[in-house]
Write a protein that binds this DNA or RNA. Structure first.
Length: 280
DNA sequence: AAAGTAACCTGCCCGC
DNA sequence: TGCGGGCAGGTTACTT
C-alpha cells in the first residue's frame, strides 16, 4: 500500500486517536513480522506503556513511548493499521485472518495490524537504539531542509535511470511506485532518462513536481485504488484516486495531450507514462 | 558500479 | 470448473 502520503495520513490519525492511551495487552498472531526484540520482550516491553508522540521517516511510522523507546512500523506492500473504539467495528473488506498484531488499550479500544502479504515489519527499540534501515534513509522530500540545491546535488553524477533514483530510499525517502510515475509525468520527464542527462531546468521541474505531487496526495489523504488495499486508521479510503494523473490507467489517455498512455516495466515494476509528453 | 533477478507472501484476474 | 501465469502500493540479497 503505502508511500509517503499514505504513511503520513496514518501518522496524523495516530496522533489524533491513540496518544496517552495505556496499552493493557498485546496479542501477536504472526510472530515473524516482529523483527526486534524477541516475542516475549516485545510484549512485556509494551504492556503498561503508552505512546506520547508519533513521527514519520520515509515510509516508516515511529511511535514514541513514554519510556522514550520506539515502536516502529513499516507497512510493506499491504500492511494496514486500524483503530477501533470500544464496541465499534469498522466496516471494510479487511479480512480477520490477516490480523497479525493487536494492541488493547485501557479504555477498551484497540489497534489492529493487518497485512495480507506479510511484508510489513515491526520493531520495538530502546531510546538510544538505532535501526540501520532508518539511519540510511535519504532526504525527507517535504521538509524545508530539502532545497533544490540539495536535490540537485543528490541527482547529479548519478548513473542509472531517474525513476529508479526517485524510488531509491537512500536518496529520497518515501517515493514508491505510484508517485514515481505521477511525479515524472507532471515534470514531463521520461522515467528511463539517465539521471545525469537531466538539465538544470528539467531538475527544477522535477523538484517542484516532487513537492506538489506529494503535498497534493497528503492533502487527499493518500490513494486507495480499486483493490481497496489501503485505508486510513479509521478505515476510510484516500481521495487521491480522484486526482491521480496516470497511474493505473492502462487504457487511458494522457490528461494533457490525449495520446494513449503506455506502461513499461522498470526493475520489474509497472511504470506509466505518456510517450508524447515524456520523450526519452 | 549498475542493472537484473529472485525471494519473501497471499489473492485476484485472465486466458486456456 | 480448474489450473497456471502474471500481477499487486516494498525491500533485500545475490548474481551478472
Amino acid at each position: 500500500m503505502p508511500e509517503l502520503p499514505e504513511v503520513e495520513t496514518i501518522k496524523r490519525d495516530l496522533e489524533k486517536e491513540i496518544l496517552y492511551k495505556r496499552i493493557t495487552d498485546i496479542r501477536v498472531c504472526l510472530p515473524r513480522i516482529i523483527k526486534l526484540p524477541g516475542l516475549a520482550q516485545f510484549s512485556t516491553g509494551l504492556k503498561g506503556k503508552f505512546i506520547k508522540g508519533v513521527k514519520r521517516r520515509g515510509k516508516y511510522i515511529l511511535c514514541i513511548l513514554n519510556n522514550d523507546g520506539y515502536l516502529i512500523f513499516h507497512l510493506g506492500m499491504s500492511g494496514v493499521l486500524f483503530y477501533q473504539r470500544k464496541n465499534e467495528n469498522i466496516s471494510t473488506r479487511i479480512k480477520e485472518k490477516h490480523n497479525h498484531l493487536l494492541f488493547f488499550f485501557e479504555d477498551g479500544s484497540k489497534m489492529i495490524y493487518n497485512d495480507v502479504r506479510q511484508f510489513g515489519k515491526i520493531w520495538l527499540i530502546h531510546a538510544n537504539e538505532k535501526l540501520p534501515e532508518i539511519e540510511s534513509l535519504g532526504w525527507e522530500p517535504l521538509e524545508d531542509s530539502f532545497t533544490f540545491q540539495e536535490f540537485f546535488r543528490s541527482v547529479q553524477n548519478k548513473k542509472g535511470n531517474i525513476k529508479s533514483l526517485l524510488m531509491n530510499q537512500k536518496n529520497i525517502a518515501g517515493i514508491g511506485n505510484i508517485y514515481a510515475s505521477e511525479i515524472l509525468f507532471l515534470a514531463g520527464i521520461h522515467p528511463l532518462r539517465k539521471a545525469d542527462s537531466l538539465t538544470e531546468n528539467e531538475l527544477r521541474k522535477l523538484f517542484l513536481s516532487i513537492r506538489s505531487t506529494l503535498n497534493k496526495a497528503v492533502l487527499a489523504r493518500g490513494m486507495t485504488m480499486e483493490d481497496e488495499s489501503y485505508f486510513d486508521l479509521l478505515g476510510k479510503p484516500g481521495n487521491y484516486r480522484e486526482e491521480v494523473l496516470i497511474y493505473g490507467k492502462k487504457k487511458g489517455n494522457c490528461p494533457t495531450c490525449g495520446h494513449p498512455l503506455s506502461v513499461i516495466r522498470i526493475e520489474n515494476r509497472s511504470t506509466y507514462l505518456c510517450p508524447n509528453c515524456q520523450k526519452n
